[in-house]
Structure formats: structure tokens, C-alpha cells
Design a protein around this nucleic acid. Sequence first.
DNA 1: ACTATATCCTACTAATTTAGTTGGTATTTT
DNA 2: AAAATACCAACTAAATTAGTAGGATATAGT
Lengths: 134, 134
Amino acid sequence: MKFSTRTTYGLRAMIYLSKYWQKEKISIASIAKAEGISSKYLERLFAKLKKEDLIVAEKGSSGGYALARDPKEVTVFDIVKSLEGKMSPFHCVDESGKVYCGKNCKCGATLVLVKVQKAINDTLKGIKLKDISK
Amino acid sequence: MKFSTRTTYGLRAMIYLSKYWQKEKISIASIAKAEGISSKYLERLFAKLKKEDLIVAEKGSSGGYALARDPKEVTVFDIVKSLEGKMSPFHCVDESGKVYCGKNCKCGATLVLVKVQKAINDTLKGIKLKDISK
DNA sequence: ACTATATCCTACTAATTTAGTTGGTATTTT
DNA sequence: AAAATACCAACTAAATTAGTAGGATATAGT
């Protein structure tokens, strides 16, 4: 089991943006270069972040991206969720923690899955973007 | 991000075995049938569990598998780890929690990864096989 | 108006991982 | 000897992830 690099790339880009919060707009090209990420790939990740209103964009020359909200108020959960899609890392358990696997819904295994899912989400919700951008 | 079905399959099989702890040996065929898992696939998962000494096997007719240790003493972490390989769900962070990514090792993103990894592992270590096999 | 620099959009490709299959061999009980 | 079991290696199929290609669209500065 591996988390995708999307999460790490996205976090790094958001940290980068938070350094310019209420200062400058930043282009994908410059973030990609600074962080060593494919700019075309980062482009696609930014589409997701924008769709969830975590960042705002301005087109055209001297355009770029900026955080949509104060880094003090954005949680890492918000970011990871927008990049990874639904935060339900198991096939049997949906996002709300409800178990719906076909075969044997009351099996002890799902107790584990639900706890792990909750542990991950609680951890992510407990960290603000501000906390990790110094 | 999804955990693989291996984890769930393996847990369910181990729960199944724990019901027969110090009673009977159980064949893969019967577990696979009862749990609705491909028996050939389960075979391969059992190879991993055996390699980590979580189960013991006896060959031949009337052979089968049994838990190697008391379900009170086996943690879910032991099981998941043997199935998933290393419990380092991020590319930047090794199993011990050490960060070793090439580019920017001190970046704030790794703080998140380390915390999530710890949260998962602590959760898994806190659950005994016995706890989930009623 | 032109040009350079951006975001935005869609489709394709490559690599990796996961899940499952095929076809056996070795061992033990009956 | 036959049946049932674990054991083993190689292959295939499906899904996901990572990355690329090739543009269209919008804006600022000249």
C-alpha cells in the first residue's frame, strides 16, 4: 500500500503558495521548477485543487495561482481529499465510515478498517496548512 | 489512495483461523469457499503469512493451516505488515519514520506523512487478532 | 494588433501495482 | 494407489498512477 505522489506533490505546491499568501500570484512553471515536479502533471493536480476552491487562478500573461483561503484555516485533510478523491481507503468502508461490503458486513476486519480510516482522517484534519509552511 | 484487498482478505482469513485456534487445521479451500475469496489467490497470501511465522502448515491429505501463535498475542499490525510488505505508505518516508526523499527533505509535507504513517501503525498495533475474532 | 506568457482542456501513453489464473510438484493420509 | 493437501513459478488481466502531447483560451505589455 502506497499513498500516491499526488498527495506529496500537492502538499508541496500548497506550501509553496502559502509563502506568497496575500503577496504574489505564482505560475505553475515556477512551482514545478522549484519543486522538481513535471509542470504538466502539476497542472492537472491544480485543476483539482481549484475545483475544490482551495486555490484561485488568473489567466493571461502575469497570471498565476494563489491560495483561496488563509493557510491558518485550510486543513491538510482538505488538500489531500481534493487530490485523492474520496477519503475511503478501503473497498468495504465508505467515506462516512459506513460498511457496505457484500459478503460479510459484520466481519471483524471492517472494525480495523474503520479505525484506520478514522485515524488517518483525524490526523489530516488536525494539521493546518499554516502549521507546515514555515 | 486505496488499501489493497489483500489486507482485508488476509484479516478475514486470520479471523477465520482464530476460531479454530488449538482445535483444527483448516484447508485453504474451505476458507476460500466460506469467505468468497479465490483460493489460488489466498494461497499466495498465506505464503506471506507463513513466511512471517503467523501461521503454520501441514502438508498432505488432512493437512491444513493453523495460527502459529495465540490470537491474544498477535497484533493486526503483524498481519497487515506481512501482507503489505513494508509499512511505509509514502515514497519519502521509510518504515522507521526517517525521511529520505532526494529533493527537499525538510519540506513540511513530510511532517504530514510521518504523522499519518504513525497514526496508521499505532492503530494497527493497538488491535489484537483476538479483539476482532468473536 | 501582436506577442509572450499564462491558465485551461482533452486525449493519449507508459509504468507500476493489484488481482487472479494456469499448470504444475511435493507430501501425507486413507 | 488415490485423494487431498500445501507449495511453487510463471503468466495474464485489470486498474491505477504518472507523465506527455498538443492544443485552445485569456490577459498584459509593447
